[in-house]
């Protein structure tokens, strides 16, 4: 039950961040858009994006400084898998105009048709990918 409580609290915080950004800057808190528009050809409205990303990077540092335990991160060490997945996520979120935060957290509550379709597709494909990968690993 502990996990569910933490997940809910974390989710509420993510929602508060999105509302704060909408209230102050009038922008959708979509991380893929915030990062990709800093890359060339850079959007002229880039500086708030950099401030947001610096904030994102500051939290884990504060966590390391003040918390007794570091947040747990278990990720594959397979170099080619990390690179292939990174490329897919980068290309996919730019041409699909968003990721979990933009389409999911900000698009779903606005009942955006594009965000609902995108979220259903990327969640579905991700579930399928995990399923097929577990079958393939099991068969080896």
């Amino acid at each position: 039950m502990h996990d569910y409580l933490l997940a809910t609290i974390g989710g509420l915080l993510i929602g508060v961040a999105a509302v704060l950004l909408m209230y102050s800057h009038g922008k959708v808190m979509g991380v893929s858009g915030i990062v990709s528009r800093l890359l060339p050809p850079t959007d002229k409205d880039w500086s708030w994006r950099l401030s947001f990303l610096i904030g994102m990077g500051a939290t884990p540092l504060l966590f390391l400084a003040f918390a007794s335990t570091a947040p747990q991160i278990e990720v594959t060490s397979n170099i080619s898998l990390l690179i292939i997945a990174g490329l897919l996520v980068g290309v996919g979120t730019v041409i699909g105009n968003g990721c979990t935060s933009g389409h999911g957290v900000c698009g779903l509550p606005r009942f955006s048709k594009r965000s609902i379709i995108a979220t259903v597709i990327f969640m579905g494909v991700a579930v399928l990918t995990v399923f097929l990968k577990s079958k393939m690993v099991g068969a080896l």
Binding site: V75, A85, V89, G92, T93, I117, A126, T129, K133
Partner: peptide, 18 residues
């Protein structure tokens, strides 16, 4: 297409941009 590619990458290692 973008959502499909993103979902594939997300499922492969469990990382999305945030």
């Amino acid at each position: 297409l973008g959502a499909v590619l993103f979902g594939l990458g997300w499922g492969l290692v469990g990382l999305c941009p945030g």
